[in-house]
Design a protein around this nucleic acid. Structure first.
Length: 104
DNA sequence: CTAATGACGCTAC
DNA sequence: CGTAGCGCCATTA
């Protein structure tokens, strides 16, 4: 169990995500000091205690369904449990993002 | 060293 | 709102 890489930084950044809010891989990566791609990689290895479901794509969609469609469904249920709502499609509303400024 | 890939980001149509 | 294409950075072949 050794991740001597930016993985740990991504996990800690994910823990800083407040409940009822979501964050994009880019935002999380910025907090962890890595790029969005690296954040996604780390999120695939998320250990216990890390709210990986609070991390979505920049546009609120769930890009993880590419290989694990069931996982995407699980994430959506988790987000709904947090009070987050979805649009007609599988996308989280922008006002739930940490990036505030929900008012245009 | 070059090519390909990935729980991505953003612009363009 | 939907799809298509390119860019990004690190790991692996």
């Amino acid at each position: 169990l050794e991740e001597p890489t930016w993985f740990a930084a991504v996990y800690e950044a994910a823990r800083t995500i407040p409940p009822g809010q979501v964050c994009s891989y880019g935002q999380l990566g910025a907090l962890a000091g890595v790029t969005a791609r690296m954040a996604g990689k780390a999120l695939a290895f998320t250990p216990e205690g890390v709210p990986w479901w609070r991390v979505v794509a920049w546009d609120g969609s769930l890009p993880i369904h590419k290989k694990d469609p069931a996982l995407a469904l699980l994430q959506r249920q988790k987000l709904e449990s947090e009070g987050i709502k979805f649009t007609g499609s599988q996308r989280v509303e922008s006002r739930f993002f940490i990036s505030d400024d929900e008012d245009s």
